[in-house]
Design a protein around this nucleic acid. Structure first.
Lengths: 214, 214
DNA sequence: CGGCTTATTGACATACGTCAACTATTGTGG
DNA sequence: CCACAATAGTTGACGTATGTCAATAAGCCG
C-alpha cells in the first residue's frame, strides 16, 4: 500500500500489531455516516465506495481501490464520518485502531509525511470531480471518468462497480447513465457489460474537454 | 493563521524569512490553472476563490477566507494547479516560496502535522459540498451554504462575494440563484444586497435536510 | 447625475429525472 | 447445468428543474 511504501519496517510493524485483516464480500459496510471513527482502513485489494446519504437518497462521493487509505480526515480530526463506506466488490481490508494510528503518527514524521501526500492526492481527486460536476454535462462526465480510469490505452476498461452505483458517483440516474453511454457510442466508445473500450482517445478527450493536469 | 498556531516561533520565522506579503484588490490572480506552484499562500484577511475552468466556462470550487492556507496539495506534490485562485474581496496574502516550505515541512514534524489537519479539514469541506451537489436541489444547496456560513445565529450573514460568483460555487446560474433566494423567502430567509438573515433556523435546516456532522 | 455592472424577472428551451414497460444478466436450487 | 426468479440495465413517453435569452430594474462609483 502506497502510504506505507517508504516507511521503516519498525513503523509498519508497530502500526499492524493491533490490526485485523478481513476479506469482505461486495456490499459490506465498513462504517456509517455519523459514526465516530474506530479504525483506519487500508484497502489491500478490491474497491470501496464512500457514499453520502441525505433524506433516503444515496450518492457515491468517490471510489477507492487497492493500496489506498480510507477517509483518514475523520480519524485525524476525531470527527464523525461525513459518509458511509461500503465495498463495491470483494475486498481485503486491514483495520488499524484509530487511537493507535494517531499516536504513531504523532511521533513518526515519515508516516505523517506519507499521510499528507495521500490526503493531497485525494483532495485533487475531489477537485477534478467538482470541476466535472459544475462544468460538464452528464455524457462528458462519463467520458471524463472513463478516461481517468484507463491506465493503459489499448486495453479495455473493466468497471468493478454496478452501473447504477456508478451513476450516483457521476451525479446522475441509472437511466441517464444509460443514455450517456449511448451518446458516447457516437464518439467511439463501445461497452458490453462492465467492459468498455475507447475507440479514439483524442476524440473522447475533445468531447469532454479533458484537461490532463495530473 | 490556524496552520501556524501551534508551531514554534523558530519554525515560523524560518518559514517567513523569504516570504513576501501583499495587499491585493478584489479580482487579483494568485495563480492560474495549469501553473507550476511557486508559493504557498497564506490568507491573512479577505477571501479567495479557487476557480476551475473548462471550455471558456468557469466555476468556483470553493472559497477560502482569513487564516487559511491555499491549495497546498499542488505544492506538496509538485504538480500543476488544477484550478486558478482569485481574490474575491480585498485580501492580505503571505507568499512563501514553495521549495522553502517543502524543505521545512520535510524536517519539522509539528508543521507537517498542522498541514495534515488543514488538509483533512479542507477535504471535509469538499465532501460536504459534493453531497450537496449530488443530493440536493439548487434552493437546498443555497440553504445549506447559508447555514454553514452563519457562525452566530441572530447576526445576519454578510456575503463577501458577488451573487454571480456565488452562483457558480453552488453549481448554478445567477438566474437560478436569484430564484433560489425567492424560494428561501418562503421559509423565512430575507436578503437585501449582500446581507442575509435567517428567520427560522430549524425550518431552514429541515428544508435542506441539513446534517450537522462538523 | 450618468454610465456601467450586477441582479431580477419573464418567456421559453432543454438536459436530466421519473415512471413504467421491457430486456438482459446474474445468481440459485433442483 | 439448466430453469427460473430476482436483480440490473435499457428504452420510450413524459414531467420538471434548471439553463438560456432578453428586457428591465437595481446597485455602484466616477
Amino acid at each position: 500500500m502506497r502510504l506505507l511504501q517508504n516507511l521503516q519496517t519498525a513503523t509498519i510493524d508497530n502500526l499492524l500489531v493491533e490490526s485485523t485483516t478481513h476479506t469482505l464480500g461486495a456490499g459490506s459496510v465498513l462504517f456509517e455516516q455519523g459514526d465516530e471513527p474506530q479504525y483506519v482502513h487500508f484497502i489491500l485489494r478490491g474497491s470501496v465506495a464512500l457514499v453520502g446519504r441525505s433524506d433516503e437518497q444515496e450518492a457515491v462521493i468517490e471510489f477507492f481501490g487497492g493500496s489506498e487509505v480510507l477517509l483518514t480526515p475523520a480519524v485525524i480530526l476525531k470527527r464523525p464520518y461525513l459518509v458511509s463506506a461500503r465495498t463495491v466488490a470483494e475486498s481485503r481490508i486491514v483495520q488499524i485502531p484509530a487511537e493507535r494510528f494517531r499516536q504513531i503518527a504523532g511521533r513518526d514524521h515519515a508516516l505523517t509525511t506519507a499521510l499528507t501526500l495521500e490526503l493531497a492526492r485525494h483532495w485533487r481527486m475531489l477537485v477534478v470531480q467538482m470541476k466535472d460536476l459544475k462544468l460538464r454535462s452528464a455524457a462528458q462526465r462519463l467520458a471524463s471518468y472513463l478516461l481517468s480510469r484507463c491506465e493503459n490505452p489499448g486495453r479495455p476498461i473493466m468497471l468493478n462497480e454496478e452501473r447504477r452505483i456508478l451513476a450516483t458517483r457521476l451525479g446522475m440516474t441509472p437511466e441517464s447513465l444509460s443514455r450517456a453511454f449511448r451518446a458516447l457510442a457516437e464518439v467511439g466508445v463501445t461497452s458490453r457489460g462492465r467492459t468498455i473500450s475507447i475507440g479514439d482517445f483524442e476524440r473522447l478527450r475533445q468531447f469532454c474537454r479533458y484537461d490532463d493536469l495530473t
